[in-house]
C-alpha cells in the first residue's frame, strides 16, 4: 500500500519580471494580429483572412513560376511577363481593402461587445496605448498583406535578371523602398477609415459592409464633385480617401494620375490629405475610448 500526502499549493505570488507598459502593448498587438487572422478561434474565423492572403500571394507565385519555366521559350523580358510592382498594387488593392474591412471589426468590436475594456482598465495601459497597439496590429497586418506578394515578385524579377539575383536585387533596391512607401499609402487610405468605423460599429459584419460601401461612396462623391462647378471642386479628389492610396502609389512610382492632373493638384497632396485624415480619426477615436478606458 502506498501512502501519500495532499499538498494545498494555494497561491504563489509572482516575484519575477514585469514588462510594464511596453509588455502590455506588445500583448495587445499580438492579440490583435491573432484576432484578425482567426488564430485561437473557430475554423470559420480563419477562412476569409487566410483565403485573402492566399489570393494576394497566388498571382505573384504563379507568375514567377511561369516565368522561370517558360522564359527562354517565350524570350520575353521579365518585366513584360510579370508586370511592374505598381500594376501589382492594382491587382491586390481590392483584396487588401476586403482584408482590412474584415480585420478591423474583428480586432476592435469584440472588446466593446463583450465589455472586455473593463479588464484593460486594470492593466498598465491608457486609452491611447490601447488604440496605438490595436491600430498597430492592423497596420502591421495590412502592410505585410501588401508587401509580401510584392517581395515574392521582386525576388522573382531579380532571379530572372541576366545580371544575376544578387546584383539585380542591389541595383533595384530603390524599387523596394517604393514598394514600402506605396504600401504605407494603401495602409492609411484603407486602414484609417476602417479603424474609425470599427471603433463605433457594434456588429462585425455590418462594419465590414460599412467600410467598403463608405469608401466607395466617398470616392464616388469626390469624383462627382471634381467634375462639377461647385466652388473648390478642384480640391474634391482629396476627399476620396480610398482612392488616395493609388494616388500615393502613382506619386511614389512617378506615374501620372488623370484625376489629380485634371484638378491641377500635385500628387503629394494625396499623402498630405491622408495625414490630416489620420490625425482627425485618431482624435475622434481617442475621445470615444477615453470614456471607457
Amino acid at each position: 500500500m502506498t501512502t501519500g500526502q495532499i499538498y494545498d499549493l494555494g497561491y504563489t505570488p509572482h516575484e519575477g519580471e514585469r514588462l510594464g507598459r511596453s509588455g502590455a502593448m506588445r500583448a495587445i498587438t499580438k492579440d490583435g494580429i491573432k484576432r484578425a487572422l482567426g488564430i485561437g478561434r473557430k475554423a470559420r474565423s480563419k477562412i476569409m483572412p487566410m483565403g485573402l492572403i492566399l489570393a494576394a500571394m497566388t498571382p505573384a507565385v504563379v507568375l514567377v513560376g511561369i516565368a522561370f519555366v517558360f522564359k527562354s521559350e517565350l524570350n520575353l523580358d521579365s518585366t513584360d511577363l510579370l508586370g511592374s510592382h505598381a500594376t501589382y498594387f492594382d491587382l491586390i488593392s481590392t483584396l487588401s481593402l476586403l482584408f482590412i474591412a474584415l480585420a478591423a471589426p474583428a480586432v476592435m468590436i469584440p472588446d466593446r461587445r463583450d465589455n472586455v475594456l473593463a479588464v484593460y482598465s486594470s492593466r498598465p495601459v491608457s486609452a491611447a496605448d490601447y488604440l496605438i497597439a490595436r491600430g498597430g496590429s492592423l497596420a502591421l497586418l495590412m502592410f505585410a498583406f501588401l508587401v509580401l506578394p510584392q517581395l515574392v515578385l521582386f525576388v522573382g524579377l531579380a532571379a530572372l535578371d541576366p545580371s544575376g539575383l544578387f546584383s539585380a536585387m542591389v541595383s533595384d533596391s530603390g524599387e523596394v523602398l517604393r514598394i514600402l512607401a506605396a504600401s504605407v499609402g494603401y495602409v492609411v487610405a484603407f486602414g484609417v477609415p476602417a479603424f474609425l468605423v470599427a471603433a463605433y460599429a457594434k456588429r462585425t459584419g455590418m462594419a465590414a459592409g460599412m467600410i467598403i460601401i463608405g469608401l466607395a461612396l466617398l470616392d464616388g462623391v469626390a469624383e462627382a464633385l471634381t467634375h462639377s462647378d461647385v466652388p473648390g471642386a478642384s480640391l474634391a479628389p482629396l476627399l476620396g480617401i480610398g482612392a488616395l492610396g493609388g494616388t500615393v502609389r502613382d506619386w511614389v512610382f512617378d506615374l501620372s494620375n488623370r484625376t489629380f492632373f485634371q484638378a491641377g493638384l500635385p500628387l503629394w497632396s494625396a499623402a498630405a490629405s491622408l495625414l490630416v485624415t489620420t490625425v482627425i480619426v485618431a482624435y475622434v477615436v481617442l475621445r470615444r475610448y477615453r470614456r471607457e478606458l
Partner: peptide, 26 residues
Amino acid sequence: AEGSTLPLDQTAADFMVYAAELAGIP
C-alpha cells in the same frame, strides 16, 4: 467589473494567459 467582461469566443486558458501578459508578465 459587474456583469460579464469575458471574450466569449476565447478559451479560459487563452484569455488568462492574455490577461497576465497584459499586466506585463512574460
